[in-house]
Design a protein around this nucleic acid. Structure first.
Lengths: 129, 129
DNA sequence: CCTTGACTTCGAGCCCACTCCAGGTGGTAG
DNA sequence: CTACCACCTGGAGTGGGCTCGAAGTCAAGG
C-alpha cells in the first residue's frame, strides 16, 4: 500500500504519515527497492491505532514512548501497560470534565429555550452570564 | 477582586486572564481609578464559564463570537443559542470518539493483563499492534 | 531517451493557546 | 521622599502538532 492509499484509508495527509514515522509515533514502514514506503497490515495497524489514540487527545509523547518500548521487546510489557493505564485515566478524567461542561451547556441552552428575552434580563440580573 | 485573587480562584495565571480579556473571550473587566482590574461577580462568572468551556475543548473562536453577540444585546439571542447548540454537538461528538478510544484502550489493557508474553506474540502474529 | 508524476528527505513555516519579558505606573509603608 | 510591590501594556517567544516548499529520485509511458 502506498502512502497516498493509506492516507485516504485513515483520513490523514501523507505529510502527517511521514511525520508520524519520523518522530517514532509508528515504527519504520517497509520500503520498496526504490525506497518508497509500502505499508503492510502491521504498519496500517499502527497508523490506525495512533489515529484512534490521537483523536482521543492522547499526547504524542506517551505514544512515542509506547512504541519505543514495544520495539524493545517483551521485557517492557509492564511498562507499556503502565502507559496504557495512565492514558486511560487521563481520558476518563477528560471525559468527566467534558460531561460537566456539557451539563452546563445544556442548562444554558435550556435557559435560552424557555425564557429567551426574559431569561436574558434574568441572567444579567443574576450576574451569571 | 484583583487579578491575582481571581487567578487563584479559578486556577489560571494572571497572564491568561489578561489574554482572555484582550482577545475578547471575556468582556472588559471593571477597573479602579488607577486602571487596575477589579473583578466583580459578573466578570468572575465569565471567567468561570470560559474555563469550563475551554476545559471541554470548545474553540476560543466560538466563545469570542458568543461574547460579541452577548454584548450586542437581546436581538442576538437566537444566534447565541445556535452557537451553544453547535458547540454541544461538537462536545458530544468528541466524547463519542473518546469513548471509542477508551474501549480500545481497555481491550488492549485486558490483553496485557491476561496473556502478557503470550499475548505479545499473538499481537505480533495478528499484525495488530 | 525524455517526460511525467508520485514518491523521497530535510528544513522551515504555521496556527493555536498561551506565556514571558521589558519598561512603565499607582498606591502604600517606612 | 523613597522604596517597593503588584499591577499595567505591547509585543515577542514557546510548545505541540502538524503542513509546506525545495530539490532530488525512481518507474512507467510515449
Amino acid at each position: 500500500m502506498t502512502i497516498t492509499e493509506v492516507s485516504r484509508k485513515y483520513g490523514v495527509t501523507p505529510d502527517t504519515l511521514r511525520y508520524y514515522e519520523r518522530i517514532g509515533l509508528i515504527p519504520p514502514v517497509p520500503r520498496t527497492k526504490g525506497g518508497v514506503r509500502d505499508y503492510d497490515a502491521e504498519s496500517c495497524g499502527w497508523v490506525e491505532l495512533m489515529r484512534c489514540m490521537r483523536s482521543a487527545g492522547v499526547q504524542i509523547e506517551a505514544l512515542i514512548k509506547y512504541v519505543e518500548l514495544f520495539r524493545q521487546g517483551e521485557e517492557t510489557i509492564e511498562a507499556r501497560k503502565a502507559i496504557l493505564l495512565d492514558q486511560r485515566d487521563q481520558i476518563v478524567e477528560r471525559m468527566a470534565e467534558m460531561q460537566r461542561s456539557l451539563d452546563r451547556l445544556n442548562a444554558k441552552i435550556e435557559g435560552y429555550e424557555q425564557g429567551l428575552l426574559k431569561k436574558e434580563r434574568q441572567l444579567r440580573r443574576e450576574q451569571k452570564p
